[in-house]
Amino acid sequence: MTRFDIRVRRNKFTQSKIDRHKNFQNLIGNYDLSSKKRTKGWILAVGLLIWAIALLLAYFALDSKQKKKLPDSQEAVSYNLKATKNTVYKL
C-alpha cells in the first residue's frame, strides 16, 4: 500500500465557491491584533527587565550599606559563641 492516495474530482471548484472563503478583513484584523500584542509584549518585557535591574541595584545598595554599619566581625562571632554555651545570665 502506498503512503498516498490519488482521487479524481469530477466537479471543478467554482470561483464563487472559493470566494466564499476569502476574508481579507479578518486577515488584516488578526495581523493588527497580533502586532498590538507583540508591542504590548515587548513593552512588558522591557518593563520587567528594568524592574528586575532596579531591584538588583537596590538590593546591592542596601547590602553594602548594612555591611558598613556592622560592628567588627570578630566581636560578633565571639558573642554568638558565648550564647551557645547555655550560660545562665543573672539579671
Binding site: 503512503r3 498516498f4 492516495d5 490519488i6 482521487r7 479524481v8 474530482r9 469530477r10 471543478k12
Partner: peptide, 28 residues
C-alpha cells in the same frame, strides 16, 4: 493521515495529452 492527491479529471487528460502519443487512449 494518509496523504491525498485529488486531481481534476480534466487535469489528468491534459497530462496525458501533453506527454503521451495521440494513438494511445487510457481511462482515468
Amino acid at each position: 493521515k494518509r496523504v491525498i492527491f485529488s486531481f481534476d479529471a480534466q487535469e489528468f487528460e491534459n497530462l496525458i495529452e501533453q506527454n503521451v502519443e495521440e494513438e494511445h487512449e487510457f481511462d482515468i
